[in-house]
């Protein structure tokens, strides 16, 4: 059996009004654990939200910088129309480069749907030209008009219809992360308020004694607010450290896609440091509201 936990002096709340609250109790431990667990979840939600942000930017940027010209023409005219389209692209402002995909590359694109043994030669396949845009962008309408004149089978696709839903999906992911953070904050506030109410009920005798000697509600509330705010901040600090450590050991860059981006990058590591002060502010407000409500019910 171990002895009671010894808190650092700054967290002991044993100065001023705080010391009238009994130093231990399940409500204080509950606050500590709740704040810690919520901080871990907040770190994960923050990481997911920032990762969604990065993925959204990357998808948007990648799709925005590339475009495709698809050339579909009868047998015998395809090569001439491809050459004409490439010539149009070569002379179009805003086109950094244009390259026809090889047969192997086209096959690779179709493999996920049609399998690896696709006899591409036997199919009437359009030719695909990958276009990389210069930073100034391409006048899509002008290019489409020129292609229609020089290579009637060529269709310019600037990926707008692909990019929009991807960007929208990423924005929704980011919003979900923020909603999760708000819910975590609300749940923390509710738990701390409940713990405060339980602590006030458990310490009814202490409160009656303080009233007897002339303590104002604000003085009594301050005692509980200080205790619970410090404990919530301490729990959130520990939870944030644990959450950051967990995010830090994620296989960054070793996994493709969203999971590979989940770890914080660069200055993003500073964001989780806002969680303990935020938890303290939430706990302060929740404890104060709960304390005044409970104290107002009795004389």
């Amino acid at each position: 059996m171990t002895g009671p936990v010894r808190w650092p002096r700054a967290l002991r709340a044993d100065t001023g009004p705080g010391r009238v609250v009994p130093p231990s109790g399940f409500t204080v431990r509950l606050t500590l654990l709740t704040a810690g667990a919520m901080a871990v979840l907040a770190v994960f939600a923050l990481a997911a939200s920032l990762a969604a942000d990065r993925v959204a930017d990357r998808w948007a940027e990648a799709l925005a910088r590339t475009a495709t010209v698809r050339v579909a023409a009868p047998e015998g005219q395809l090569e001439a129309q491809v050459a004409a389209a490439l010539e149009v692209l070569r002379t179009t402002p805003g086109v950094a480069s244009a390259r026809r995909l090889t047969q192997e590359e086209e096959q690779a694109l179709l493999t996920p749907w049609l399998g690896p043994d696709l006899p591409l030669d036997a199919l009437p396949m359009p030719a695909l030209i990958e276009v990389t845009e210069a930073p100034g962008g391409i006048d899509a309408a002008g290019l489409s008009a020129r292609l229609a004149g020089e290579a009637p089978g060529a269709v310019f696709d600037d990926h707008t219809r692909w990019r929009a839903p991807l960007v929208a999906a990423a924005a929704r992911l980011r919003a979900l992360g923020l909603i999760a953070l708000a819910l975590i904050g609300g749940a923390t506030a509710a738990m701390v308020a409940l713990a405060t109410q339980a602590a006030l009920a458990a310490n009814a005798r202490v409160i009656a004694t303080l009233r007897l000697v002339g303590a104002r509600d604000a003085w009594i509330a301050r005692a509980f607010v200080r205790r619970f705010t410090l404990r919530a901040a301490a729990g959130a600090l520990a939870g944030t450290a644990a959450g950051m450590a967990a995010v830090g050991v994620l296989p960054m860059g070793e996994v493709d896609g969203f999971l590979g981006d989940l770890a914080f990058q660069g200055a993003e590591w500073l964001w989780p440091l806002a969680i303990p002060p935020a938890a303290a502010v939430v706990a302060f407000a929740a404890t104060r509201l709960a304390a005044f409500r409970v104290l107002g019910e009795t004389r």
């Binding site: 009994p22 130093p23 202490v206 009233r211 000697v213 002339g214 509600d217 004389r299």
Partner: peptide, 29 residues
């Protein structure tokens, strides 16, 4: 008001039937 009641109690000394102390504080405190 509640604050006025608290201030009035400071002008009184109350010895409660069961004394009512904060048990984890010393007698002096």
């Amino acid at each position: 008001t509640r604050d006025e009641i608290a201030r009035a109690r400071r002008r009184m000394g109350v010895v409660h039937q069961d004394c009512q102390f904060v048990d984890h504080l010393s007698v002096a405190d």
